[in-house]
Amino acid sequence: MAMMPKRSKHRKESRGSRAGDASRSIRLDFGEFGLQALTRCWMTNTQIEAARVAITRNMKRKGKLWIRVFPHKPVTKRPPETRMGKGKGSPEFWVAVVRPGTMLFELDGLPESVAQESFRLAANKLPMRCRFVRRHG
């Protein structure tokens, strides 16, 4: 089941700004290894889920995974072949606003080679460039 908020204050939101680099959630706070975004995007809940499945399948019960992004933002779409006007479209899916530097996933409790391969598979499912990071020392 793809992630989504349990409830939301407003059904529809403005698009907002994606400018600038990430200023929070930029460090490894939980695990030894992480997948960090290098470009900006709206990461949909299905993309998060696809990446999560790719990681958990590859790591085979070993290790622990943290998902550091959550799709808080609803995105609306207008129905096809409709004229302009008549109000904003209906909410279709949820996204997480990802800016360069955002830590997307973290892993711990497994060898670095397995973590690297898991994140490589996950990054292939995502709409932005990512890099593998690990703790120093």
Partner: peptide
């Protein structure tokens, strides 16, 4: 592992199939 894989497939078909209270789910 098996269950989320199926869930992901469902999720891909309909972005927000069923969750009460959430706006896109209701829509």
């Amino acid at each position: 592992e098996a269950a989320p894989a199926e869930g992901a497939a469902e999720g891909a078909a309909g972005a927000a199939p069923a969750a009460e209270g959430a706006a896109p789910a209701a829509e």
